[in-house]
Design a protein around this nucleic acid. Structure first.
Lengths: 243, 243
DNA sequence: TACGGGCGATGACGATTGTCAATTTTTCGC
DNA sequence: GCGAAAAATTGACAATCGTCATCGCCCGTA
């Protein structure tokens, strides 16, 4: 989901610093000025809701800093973390395009900076810059690809394998490399959210975590995870549950 | 995923009979003629592969009759049915839009009729008819929505609930209503594919089927399923496993 | 017609998971 | 800092699931 701008010398979001990776890098100067007028930058504290499932759409959001969780609820109070959004990602654009209410919630996981682009502005930008529509289309394709991958894993991996895979993904985004080759993660999500992403109860995740710990695969301490050997963690994914 | 054409008096695919529901109904006469030239209709026997995962893209396909399974494989030989496509659905368009190889396979589930539109034609149509691009975008949004629903169910329902839900979906598409109010389905998929759609082993699905049978919820005989009371089946979805 | 292969059903059994409950730890607002 | 609320861990137990194995059925083929 890395969108590199074809024309890096064109408009670059002055505040966001994510210009070359964002959906807005195709804008010419006129459109860029329009974006600057219709854009409002805001900081969100941890846990703050950016938009809520069921809300009517009020434009699109572009993540500038931090991590955003895309979540879905049901009537019974269950919630599932469907995806994570990072700087450069545009969110809330689906309900804008369909003109319907948000079908997911977005919430800041930790301190986050997000720009909001109001409806008239994004409508004008889409009219003046066909490439923007193409960006959204490619973003949709990437998200659908991601969802298909998740569905496939959900059907083929064990819970332990799914957790190992999820940790590997998180290492890539949030990992720090230590001098001895091990890596550490500051998990952006709670155990309950980890569980919902994997499709198991949080007690089950707790137990898998203990086992990964005793097996020396990954050591958990709160939201800190230390992985001595990333290859060993990767080997857990497809392990046919030997021993 | 019902796409109703805004201008039913415009081009209508003469052969497909799915004009008003397909992505092509926005075409004017010129574009319609272009479509007719670049389109080739073909019948597929049960099990025939329309395009295979890993194949390079050769255009897009429009389902005219029958049912198509969208499937993903891995190196270990596992396969998961990710989606079903029906008349009016366009398939293979994602790899066309990204210019990459197919990331899923499409295969006929039963006798099927599919039109193929070659790359030059679809490229020309997209250039001449911006509304077509919009159709693809809306189709992507619908598919992503569908995938998110599936991910949510995967995380919140029991296997029995997932099978009940899947049967309800299949009833809507393939069901026949009997005089006494019960409904019957001719399943378009094997038990193994049912299992992959739910994320369980086929033996597990076999057992759940036996239990649904003894509980009087749904009676299975080969690929024939009879559901005496659809409401009772729907009640199974969220059942907190009472009894 | 006999044969082989894929599919489906079922039994046995160990492993995993969900549920309920109790306890500890962490977080967060005051 | 303190206290309440939420999150996380752990144990016990029943239910479910995965695996392995067997058996029967159907179907296409030799």
């Amino acid at each position: 989901m890395d969108y590199v701008c074809a024309k890096p010398d064109k408009h670059r979001c002055a505040v966001c610093h994510v210009g070359r990776r964002s959906d807005w890098c195709d804008l010419d100067d006129t459109a860029g000025a329009m974006l600057e007028r219709g854009r409002r930058r805001r900081e969100y504290g941890s846990g703050t809701v950016v938009f809520a499932q069921g809300d009517s759409n009020s434009g699109v959001y572009c993540v500038s800093g931090g991590t955003v969780g895309i979540r879905r609820f049901d009537d019974a109070g269950n919630s599932v973390l469907l995806a994570l959004a990072y700087p450069g990602d545009t969110i809330g654009y689906r309900s804008f395009l369909t003109g319907t209410e948000h079908k997911t919630s977005a919430e800041a996981l930790g301190p986050t900076v997000i720009c909001h682009i109001d409806r008239p502005t994004i409508t004008g930008l889409l009219a003046s810059t066909p490439a923007l529509s193409r960006r959204f289309l490619e973003r949709l394709i990437g998200e659908l690809e991601h969802a298909h991958d998740a569905m496939f894993r959900q059907a083929t991996l064990s819970n332990r394998g799914k957790l190992a895979h999820l940790l590997l993904i998180l290492v890539r985004r949030h990992g720090r490399i230590h001098e001895n080759g091990s890596q550490s993660i500051d998990l952006p999500v709670s155990r309950r959210d980890l569980a919902s992403m994997i499709g198991a109860r949080h007690e089950t995740i707790s137990r898998i975590i203990s086992r990964l710990d005793t097996d020396g695969i990954a050591h958990f301490s709160g939201r800190q995870v230390t992985i001595p050997n990333v290859e060993a963690l990767a080997a857990e994914i497809d392990r046919p549950d030997a021993v």
